[in-house]
Nucleic acid binder design. Structure first.
Lengths: 150, 150
DNA sequence: GTAAAATATATCGTACGCGATATATTTTTC
DNA sequence: GAAAAATATATCGCGTACGATATATTTTAC
C-alpha cells in the first residue's frame, strides 16, 4: 500500500522550491509595484545595473531563461521607458540592451528594497549561509544537467 | 558607489529559489510528458492520490495557489479524463474533485518518477535534511506573512 | 425572516515561461 | 566563394499565476 510514500507532497523536494519561489515574489510585489515593474523585470534590472549594454543572450544566460521569454519582457520594459534596444554594428544579429536614464534612476529607489524583506531578522544567519551554499551547489548541478541533455 | 552591493544578483536569496524551481520542473518534464500531464497537474494529482474527493479550495490551500489558477487547471484535467467535478449536495457552492479510474491508474506509473530524479545520489543526505527543515521554516514564515497582510 | 456579510468558485485580463518554429546574419566547410 | 551549419533574436501557441471582479450560495445580524 505505502510504496506510494514517495508520492506524498510533503516528501517532495520540488514542491517547497516551487511554493517558496512564488511566495517570495509576492513579498517583493508591493515594493516593485511602486517602481512600476514586475519581479522578472526587476531581475533584468539587477543584471543591467551590474553590467549595462549587454546582449539579449547574456541576460538570458544570467537569469537562466530562454530568449523567447526575455524578448517580450524586454519589449515591455522598452515600452515602459526603462531600456533601449540597439543592434550591434559588428554583428547585426545581436541586440544590445541599454538602460535609459529612467531605468538607471530606479536603482536608487530599489536599493532600499532588500532590507524591507524578511531575512536578516527572522532567519538565523548561519542557516542562511548554509542554505545559500546548498542552493549554489544544486543550481550548478541542475544547470549542468540541462546542458548534458542537449 | 557600492551601497549597491545589496542589489547584485548573487546576493539575492530570491533568485536561486526562482531559478531552481524552474530547473526542477524541467527535470520532471520528460517523465510527466509520458503521463500526458504538466508539473502543476502532477502536484494536483499528488494531493488527490493522498486524499480523494476534496474541494477546489482544499487543493488550492495545499498547493498555496488561488482558485483562479486551480479552476482552469482542473478543467483541463477534466477534459483529459483524469478527474471529475461534482457539486456538493450539502453546500452547493462547493465543487468536489474526484479521481477517475484513469487518474488513479496514473499513480502506478508516477511512483517510479522520484527515483529517476537527482537527489539520492548526487546530494549529501545530511545537507538534504537540513535543507528540508530550513525550507519548512521559511515556508511557514512566508505563509504566515501572507495571512497577516490580508 | 430578510438584508448584509461571508464563503466558494468562476471569469477576465495581463505577464510570464517555454517548446517549436521562423528569420536574419555570421561562420564554417569544402 | 557558395552552400551548409551555427548563432542571435523573434514569433506563435499553450499553460500557468495572479489581481480584480462577478456570481451563486450560505451564514450572520438585527
Amino acid at each position: 500500500m505505502d510504496n506510494y510514500e514517495v508520492l506524498k507532497l510533503d516528501n517532495q523536494l520540488c514542491f517547497p522550491f516551487y511554493a517558496i519561489s512564488r511566495l517570495i515574489t509576492k513579498q517583493y510585489q508591493p515594493h516593485l509595484e511602486e517602481l512600476g515593474i514586475t519581479y522578472p523585470q526587476y531581475l533584468v534590472l539587477l543584471v543591467l545595473w551590474e553590467t549595462d549594454q549587454i546582449s539579449v543572450n547574456t541576460i538570458a544566460e544570467k537569469l537562466i531563461l530562454k530568449t523567447n521569454t526575455i524578448t517580450p519582457l524586454l519589449k515591455r520594459m522598452e515600452n515602459a521607458g526603462l531600456i533601449k534596444r540597439l543592434k550591434s554594428k559588428e554583428d547585426e544579429r545581436k541586440v544590445y540592451i541599454h538602460l535609459t536614464k529612467k531605468g538607471l534612476t530606479l536603482r536608487e529607489k530599489a536599493v532600499c528594497i532588500p532590507s524591507k524583506l524578511i531575512g536578516s531578522d527572522e532567519v538565523d544567519d548561519k542557516q542562511m549561509e548554509m542554505m545559500k551554499k546548498f542552493q549554489q551547489q544544486l543550481l550548478t548541478l541542475l544547470k549542468a544537467m540541462q546542458n548534458t541533455e542537449e
